[in-house]
Design a protein around this nucleic acid. Structure first.
Length: 418
RNA sequence: GUGCCUGUAGCUCAAUGGCAGAGUGCUUCACUGUGGAUGAAGAUGUUGAGGGUUCGAGCCCCUCCAGGCACCCCA
């Protein structure tokens, strides 16, 4: 490899093909969000570190945020997540906004982590929140947004599943087992990663918190109980509502879903590819009082975030990424020779004035011009040679089917209009 | 931040410590009004970077860089 200055570790270059895929993804997110009445918003990528001091996972900010000083010496953070920004935006205009709010966003985030498959240091994230409602209906709606997005991009319920749980239910069950409140946060973290640690290591870690063998056994029984949701009024309603929303087959109960972020207080959920070859596609939950922490009136809500990296890997694995994104609807106008260049310029102009995107070639062997058109991935190539000029026609070649027809200028628009 | 694996042509990968290769793609021509195929010819490169051992390093050793797996965390 030549001696080219490197890009920053964990960042990605988006060449036109990749950029087209990202734009395609954003279109799908927009469609899925707007179908439920969500409006797009955006915040700054730079924030003060104070914004994150109040909440988030402490580790997320202390260990994983990019923090640096600006030229005035003030500490600046590249946002590692959007929720605190959203919280501030809502709190500052709490009295003028129409609640419940339905907002979505898509933008870049940064976390200083070791890059792996599905995890980069600079990534894009879809955030969607419903703020100002404490209802189970609102929780179910967010599950429906996620599931309908999956449907929209062709991911069936045998490819992805949304696993749900409720922190209130888990809290109750832990109390029943005799777990003291001070012990619960640590224990919940361990429950969250029970499948990541060998069984004996996990038990050792739980025992280290001060649990006896009986309690450990009770927790293991709890985590193996797929019907536990029936003891939760809220989860029972969730399953009733997702049935009515037509997405029941996407939603599944799992007592092991806890989520790392501290501000979740009720429903928590994660979407996974079913074969387990990927990290979580999206994750979210219900929070009781996000806005109060930054000085507003307490406002409950529910939301989730989806990174661009994992979802694109999953879509690629299932062959669901569209192939012909490079030049949809762009027309390639060849130039027969230097003498006819002006005629081709006029033809290209005429087409642009009629709403077409047009690439005008430069005089060269026609074979070379066609080869370029082929590599660019355009659908139509036009030839305007002496014969066509003499009888007022244009040769239109469909590069996909290899068919070509001589058509009049008047017919041209309708021929290439699809 | 911890442990392990990997890095060779644009891409996918070969090469016992002994002359750096194949497939594919690319360029040119056969084809002076046409990109699919075929045939012919051609170029692929500081073997991720730097140092060390050796008569000799793609291969062994060290450092660094990158991305992959697990941990951690999480999108």
């Amino acid at each position: 490899m030549k001696n080219i200055v490197r890009s920053v570790k964990g960042t990605r270059d988006f060449y036109p093909d990749e950029m087209a895929r990202r734009s395609w993804l954003v279109e799908k997110l927009k469609t899925a969000s707007e179908a439920f009445g969500y409006q797009r918003y955006e915040g700054p990528c730079l924030e003060t570190i104070d914004l994150y001091a109040a909440k988030s996972g402490e580790e997320l900010v202390k260990e994983q945020a990019f923090v640096f000083e600006d030229r005035g010496g003030d500490p600046i953070t590249l946002r590692p997540e959007l929720t605190p920004t959203l919280t501030r935006m809502v709190a500052s205009k709490e009295n003028e906004l129409a609640f419940p709010l339905r907002w979505w966003a898509f933008g870049p985030f940064w976390r200083y982590e070791r890059p792996q498959k599905g995890r980069t240091r600079e990534f894009y994230q879809w955030n969607i929140d419903l703020i100002g409602s404490d209802s189970v209906q609102a929780d179910a709606e967010l599950l429906a947004v996620a599931a309908n997005f999956f449907k929209l991009v062709g991911l069936k319920s045998d490819m992805v599943q949304i696993l749900v749980n409720d922190r209130r239910l888990m809290d109750r069950k832990l109390t029943d087992i005799g777990i003291r409140n001070e012990m619960k946060p640590e224990l919940l973290k361990l429950i969250d990663r029970i499948d990541k640690q060998p069984a004996d290591v996990w038990e050792k870690n739980v025992a280290a918190l001060g649990l006896d063998m009986g309690q450990i056994g009770a927790i293991k029984a709890l985590l193996a109980n797929g019907d536990l949701w029936q003891e939760s009024v809220e989860l029972s309603k969730i399953f009733e509502y997702v049935e009515a929303l037509g997405i029941r087959e996407y939603v599944q109960y799992s007592p092991k879903i806890i989520r790392g972020l501290d501000y979740y207080t009720g429903l928590v959920f994660e979407a996974h590819e079913v074969k387990g070859d990927f990290r979580a596609i999206l994750g979210g939950g219900h929070y009781a009082n996000l806005v109060a922490d930054v000085g507003g009136q307490p406002l409950p809500g529910v939301g989730f975030a989806m990174g661009d990296v994992v979802i694109m890997l999953v879509l690629e694995a299932y062959g669901l990424l569209p192939a012909d994104l490079s030049y949809p609807g762009t027309v390639f106008v060849t130039v027969f020779d230097e003498e006819l260049l002006v005629e081709s310029i006029k033809l290209a102009r005429h087409l642009r004035e009629n709403g077409f995107n047009v690439i005008l070639a430069e005089p060269d062997k026609l074979a070379r011009q066609f080869k370029l058109a082929d590599r660019l991935g355009v659908k139509f190539a036009l030839v305007l040679g002496p014969d066509e000029l003499a009888n007022g026609t244009v040769m239109v070649k469909d590069l996909r089917t290899f068919e070509q027809h001589s058509v009049s200028r008047n017919e041209l628009g309708s021929i290439i209009n699809h």
